[in-house]
């Protein structure tokens, strides 16, 4: 299945300035997303997933963060060259976002119904009453029991799962072409996770919305994404169709990730936790960022950072020896 390109990120760098130096949280990331495509972005904690997500919407707080380089091409325009006002019209309307910790991403003193209605009214120009009716309809689609009662509640009166449904309803209400879901299910327990992923999948399928789902959970990716990008130390190190990744990873870091989580294809084999720590974002080495932890490293890897290159049809890796990466499995 081929998708027309919707979003292309090129050489994006988002750095944070602090007393301890410059943290290169995102340091030259490249990737693209097609129309209606569901893409996963996986990586360890601190690899820069959230910062990438926020950078696309230009929502990184400045200070301390700043996008220092790169391009974000969306529907043919570079988002980084837009005025604040133009950018504002894209947020929530063309690109929506769902957050990791749903309860803290809602206004604590606003009824959740008004929260949804605010977005609907803003982007569809409806009045409050119509917006609330639309909110009720969305919650019904999300299979929320007695949606009217829920809409009259404040966030602190609702469960985390319910708050996440509210955020998803808000994101979808405006029928955007891209939803960025940053760890949308990580804070929820497994059963709620599954149902949220399912409804998110169905809803976006219906209106043809693309989804960028960031997570550190391989199983979530497998369930919800057709393509997956693996992120390490601020860059994408591997990018391919989900089934290919699980069949034959082509970057030693991906291999490490897969070995560290339980999975059905590997029943009976021991889990192997990855050794070492990722480099501090304030002190990235000149060569491959994974060098210190890599089982197949060679001296040449220390010379310069390996670029993300197409190593087989439809798949890219930032390893100089992609064929050997899977050998460890």
């Amino acid at each position: 299945m081929e998708h027309a390109e919707l979003l292309r990120v090129e050489g994006l760098k988002t750095w944070f300035h602090s007393r301890h130096g410059v943290a290169k949280a995102v340091d030259g990331i490249d990737f693209s997303i097609g129309e209606g495509e569901h893409v996963g972005l996986v990586g360890e904690s601190g690899s820069g997933k959230s910062v990438t997500a926020l950078s696309i919407l230009r929502l990184v707080r400045d200070p301390p963060g700043r996008i220092v380089d790169g391009r974000i091409l969306f529907e043919g325009r570079d988002l980084l060259s837009l005025s604040d006002e133009q950018m504002r019209r894209i947020r929530g309307r063309r690109i929506s976002m769902v957050f990791q910790d749903p309860a803290s991403h809602l206004d604590p003193v606003m009824k959740v119904g008004d929260w949804i209605a605010e977005a609907v009214a803003l982007h569809k120009g409806t009045n409050r009453k119509e917006a609330i009716a639309e909110a009720v309809r969305l919650l019904q689609v999300l299979k929320v029991p007695s949606p009217r009662d829920v809409l009259h509640a404040y966030p602190f009166q609702l469960s985390g799962g319910m708050c996440q449904r509210i955020l998803i309803a808000t994101a979808i209400a405006t029928e955007p072409v891209l939803i960025i879901a940053d760890e949308a299910t990580s804070a929820l327990d497994v059963t709620v996770q599954a149902s949220i992923l399912r409804t998110l999948g169905e809803l976006t399928e219906n209106i043809g919305t693309a989804v960028l789902l960031t997570t550190h959970n391989m199983r979530v990716v497998r369930k919800a994404c057709s393509r997956v990008m693996v992120m390490y130390a601020g860059r994408v190190v591997e990018d391919c169709r989900t089934e290919h990744l699980f069949e034959r990873p082509m970057h030693p870091y991906t291999v490490g990730l897969l070995n560290a989580v339980p999975s059905l294809d590997r029943v009976g084999r021991p889990l192997i936790p990855m050794l070492g720590e990722p480099p501090l974002p304030t002190a990235t080495p000149p060569g491959c960022a994974f060098f210190a932890r890599c089982p197949i490293r060679r001296p040449i890897c220390q010379e310069k950072r390996p670029p993300l290159l197409e190593v087989a049809p439809g798949r890219s890796s930032a390893c100089l020896f992609p064929e050997e990466a899977g050998g460890a499995r």
Binding site: L54, L57, L59, R61, D84, R88, R89, I90, R91, G92, R93, S96, M97, F99, D101, S104, H105, L106, D107, P108, E118, A119, L122, H123, L167, T170
Partner: peptide, 15 residues
């Protein structure tokens, strides 16, 4: 400082 400020901006609200 709170997170929901980011969520508000992500909704497209003006500053």
């Amino acid at each position: 400082r709170l997170d929901y400020m980011t969520a508000l901006r992500a909704k497209g609200l003006s500053e």
